[in-house]
């Protein structure tokens, strides 16, 4: 039972940071289906940097992980510029752009993973092998019945993500930039008339979106898989988008949805073990988050209020 909470949280938090990234992009008026691509590309850059610097650190050093996280954020943030370029500057169809970004990310990372492996290790593996993140338990809180499991065997990144989410909630709701950003997604003309720079605001939002997705990606790489390979593309980016939709583009409710996804996934897996089914049955339980998403969509999609201007390119010169 305890493992359900522990694993659930470690799945939910990377999902949440990606969803927060998606919220930033969409609230600024840029539809973001590219989360998956940002996630994968960020994880790739993070893993690549980690593999490169690992020899200079003692085995199992946790510093590598933090450097990798920073690299993932920067790498994905820069990759997100491509989405921004297509959507904001080129005024391409934003849904197409998102799909393009995702497909391109798979192609880029797959090719360069094997290329990097060949250059670094001389092998033609399609995986960048990473260390395992250390874990810790919060004394006191872990003793709480039931939900104590949340506080046992935590990954440090879970704390980092919580802090980041709080910060990005604050940035969106309590600062001038945040006011501008949300206005850009509702009525960019209003922002322009008030002296704001719609394009710049959106560029920043999309880059933030990329950086946060990259962090989510490297966290998945370090927790679930302990390596980077193209198998990191498991549709989690789209799960984050679904969480954002159910969360009605608000950070608080989205966090709750991510937690539900996380618990559903870990709960299903533990159920599989508890029922002593053969390991091949785990495939059936791995489907749970996707099925849950479809079901939630059926019940909640009608009540959504996406940002009004999301998906519409902003053309200052257009009258």
């Amino acid at each position: 039972m305890e493992k359900v909470f522990t694993d659930g949280l470690s799945f939910a938090m990377p999902l949440l940071i990606m969803a927060v990234g998606a919220i930033y992009s969409e609230k600024s008026g840029v539809t973001n289906l590219a989360v998956e691509g940002f996630q994968g590309f960020g994880a790739f850059i993070g893993a690549l940097i980690a593999v490169l610097i690992m020899p200079f650190f003692p085995k199992g050093s946790q510093t590598v992980i933090y450097i990798a996280m920073a690299a993932a954020a920067v790498g994905a943030g820069l990759y997100a510029c491509l989405h921004a370029l297509l959507c904001i500057r080129f005024q391409a169809n934003q849904v197409i752009s998102g799909v393009v970004i995702n497909i391109l990310a798979v192609a880029l990372t797959t090719f360069f993973t094997s290329a990097a492996n060949k250059a670094i290790t001389g092998t033609s593996s399609n995986k960048l092998i990473l260390d395992v993140s250390a874990r810790f338990t919060v004394p006191g809180l872990q003793a709480i019945p039931w939900i104590g499991g949340f506080f046992r065997k935590m990954y440090p990144f879970e704390i980092i993500i919580m802090v980041l989410v709080l910060f990005f909630w604050y940035l969106m709701n309590k600062t001038r930039y945040g006011m501008m950003l949300r206005a850009c997604g509702e009525n960019p003309q209003a922002v322009d008339a008030a002296g704001g720079d719609v394009e710049k605001t959106r560029w920043i939002a999309v880059m933030i979106s990329g950086a946060l997705s990259g962090i989510g990606g490297i966290c998945f790489a370090y927790s679930l898989l302990a390596n980077f390979s193209p198998s990191i593309y498991l549709g989690y980016g789209y799960l984050a988008i679904a969480a954002m939709i159910f969360g009605n583009w608000k950070i608080g409710p989205t966090a709750l949805v991510c937690l539900i996804f996380g618990l559903a996934k870990s709960g299903g897996y533990q159920l599989c073990i508890a029922m002593q089914l053969p390991s091949s049955y785990s495939d059936l339980f791995l489907m749970l988050p996707y099925i849950l998403t479809l079901l939630l969509m059926v019940f909640f999609s009608a009540k959504n209020h996406p940002p009004k201007a999301a998906g519409e390119p902003w053309d200052k010169g257009r009258r």
Binding site: R176, M179, M180, R182, A183, E186, N187, Q189, A190, V191, D192, A193, A194, G195, G196, K308
Partner: peptide, 15 residues
Amino acid sequence: KLVGNYTVAENIVLG
């Protein structure tokens, strides 16, 4: 040039 889901004051002070 007003943001529909903002209050009057939020619109006026925007930026």
